[in-house]
């Protein structure tokens, strides 16, 4: 009989699995994580009113060669991170029903939040970047406000923001292990607690900024 039920699977994509997985982690933390922090900050400027927000938007839009940054520090890392992330998710068979440990739930939630984040980001980028690029629609306080006054969109944004902040902070927890920084259970427990606080803070900033628009 066959004794290799679980092994091996070899697909072309897997030829550089290790290197690609490290790039996946790096892409999520360095350009995307840094951009997330910047983005949450810029949104929070809305708490100072429409004028301050529009000024912040204009400042960002006025960065020289902003499109280079958008393509190489956001778009490409995002596409790669999402594509490889979906591929990695497909390799797993979640088993939280049998093994309901916290870390196993976070493993599952990391994959679910990744998919939700992707859907959210696609919709968000369409609404406030591509639409304006294609049709020249204005991106300002008023536009965001009109957008978020729709309760369905608002609810989707709440889910989206929480998915992003969870995916980022839990990804950092996992990344600290991937990069061999937190090796022992005690260190991983402490990093988990710190990142839980970061998750709460980023969520408060993200959701709080949304309230400024409605």
């Amino acid at each position: 009989m066959s004794s290799s039920k679980a092994l091996p699977v070899s697909t072309p994509l897997l030829q550089k699995h290790f290197l690609l997985s490290r790039l996946h982690s790096l892409a999520g933390i360095v350009p995307l994580g840094a951009f997330l922090i910047e983005h949450l900050y810029s949104n929070a400027v809305a708490l100072q009113g429409a004028f301050a927000y529009d000024k912040q938007v204009a400042t960002l839009q006025g960065i020289p060669f902003v499109w280079l940054l958008e393509i190489f520090l956001i778009l490409l890392p995002l596409l790669y991170h999402a594509g490889y992330g979906i591929y990695v998710s497909l390799l797993s068979s979640p088993n939280t029903r049998t093994y309901g440990y916290g870390s196993n739930w976070r493993f599952l939630l990391q994959r679910v939040s990744g998919i939700v984040t992707l859907l959210f980001v696609v919709y968000h980028v369409w609404s406030f970047r591509l639409k304006s690029a294609f049709f020249g629609t204005e991106v300002d306080f008023h536009a965001v406000s009109a957008h978020l006054l729709n309760p369905w969109i608002f609810a989707f944004y709440v889910l989206g923001v929480l998915s992003v902040t969870f995916h980022f902070t839990n990804g950092l927890w996992s990344g600290l292990i991937t990069w061999g920084i937190t090796t022992g259970p005690r260190a991983q427990q402490i990093s988990g607690r710190i990142l839980l606080v970061l998750f709460a803070l980023l969520s408060v900033v993200g959701l709080g900024s949304m309230l400024a628009f409605v």
Partner: peptide
């Protein structure tokens, strides 16, 4: 670091529990 290696660890940490 081969394709069958550690890159597939997803940190669910079930292993250490069981």
């Amino acid at each position: 670091i081969s394709n069958a290696g550690i890159a597939s660890c997803g940190n669910s940490q079930n292993c250490v529990q069981v």
